[in-house]
Nucleic acid binder design. Structure first.
Ligand code: ZN
Ligand code: ZN
Ligand code: ZN
Ligand code: ZN
Lengths: 133, 133
DNA sequence: TAAAACCATATAGCCACTATAAGGTCAATA
DNA sequence: TATTGACCTTATAGTGGCTATATGGTTTTA
C-alpha cells in the first residue's frame, strides 16, 4: 500500500509518517520505480504501535527504547515496566503541579468581580504586587 | 542598572530579557555609549510582572493582552477576569486529560509484573494489540 | 486531454526559551 | 603594561512533535 492508504488506515497524516521515518521510528519502506513508498502489513502494525504509545504521551525517545526491547524478546521485561513506572510518575507530578497552579489561579480570580475599572482590578493587582507565594 | 543586575534581581536569564524585548513584552531600554542596555526601576517591575504571569503559565500572548489592558485604566475589567477564567478552564481540562491518561497507564502497568521475558510482557502486549479504548 | 488526487523533497513555523559562537568593553590585577 | 576575567553585544541553531507551505512529478479519473 502507498503512504496515503497507510495514513488513513492508522489515522495519521502522511507528513507524520515521513517524519517518523526520518526519526528512525518507522523503517524505510521499499520504493516503486517512481519513488513512491510501498508499505506492508508490518508497517501498519508498527505505526499503530507508535500511535498507541503517543496517545499515552510516551515520548518518541521512549518509543524508540520500547522498540529496542522488542528486538530482544528473551530479556527480562523489568526495564519496560520501569519505563512505564517513570512515565506514570511524571504524569502524576504534572497533575500535582497543575493542581497547585489551579489553586493559585482560583485564588487570584477570587480577588475581583466583574464590575471594576481596570485600575482597581484585583487580578491585575495580584499580578502586579507579587503577593504570590 | 545593566542587564545582568536586572536578570539577577528578578531571577531570569539575560537571554530571556533580550527575548522578551524582541517579542515586545519589555520596552527597549536606553543604551550607554558602548551599546549596553540601561534599565530603570520600571523595567524591574515590568519584568517581575511578566515572570509572575509566567509562573501561572499565562502565555506570552496573554501577557501581552494584560499589558494592553494596563494602558487603559478606566475600562471595565471584565476582559481581564474573562482571560483568567479561560486560562483556569484550560488548566482544568489539562488536569482532566492527565487523569484519564494516568488511569490508562496504571491499568496497562497492572497487566505485568517484573518477572517475565519481554516476549510475554503484559505492557508491551497491551501496546501492541490495541486493546485500548 | 485536462483536472483532480496523489506522491516526492525541502524548508519554515509553532512555543518559550536555552545554548553556542564570535566578538566588543571594562575594571582589576601581575 | 599586559592580561585576565566578568560583563556586554548580535546572530544563529536547537528543543519536541508535529504541521504548513512551496514546488514539482505521477497517477487516476471524467
Ligand atoms: Zn515519559
Ligand atoms: Zn478584575
Ligand atoms: Zn492561558
Ligand atoms: Zn513487563
Amino acid at each position: 500500500m502507498r503512504i496515503g492508504q497507510l495514513a488513513r488506515s492508522v489515522g495519521v497524516d502522511t507528513q507524520t509518517i515521513r517524519f517518523y521515518e526520518r526519526e528512525g521510528l518507522l523503517p524505510p519502506p521499499d520504493r516503486q520505480d517512481n519513488g513512491y513508498r510501498i508499505y506492508t502489513e508490518r508497517h501498519v502494525e508498527r505505526l499503530a504501535f507508535i500511535r498507541r504509545c503517543r496517545i499515552l504521551e510516551l515520548s518518541l525517545a521512549e518509543i524508540h527504547e520500547l522498540q529496542r526491547y522488542q528486538g530482544a524478546p528473551h530479556q527480562p521485561c523489568r526495564a519496560i515496566n520501569t519505563l512505564l513506572d517513570d512515565h506514570i510518575a511524571q504524569v502524576r507530578s504534572q497533575i500535582t503541579d497543575l493542581q497547585v497552579l489551579e489553586k493559585q489561579l482560583v485564588s487570584l480570580r477570587a480577588s475581583c468581580n466583574d464590575d471594576r475599572e481596570i485600575e482597581a482590578c484585583g487580578v491585575l493587582e495580584g499580578l502586579s504586587e507579587g503577593s504570590m507565594q
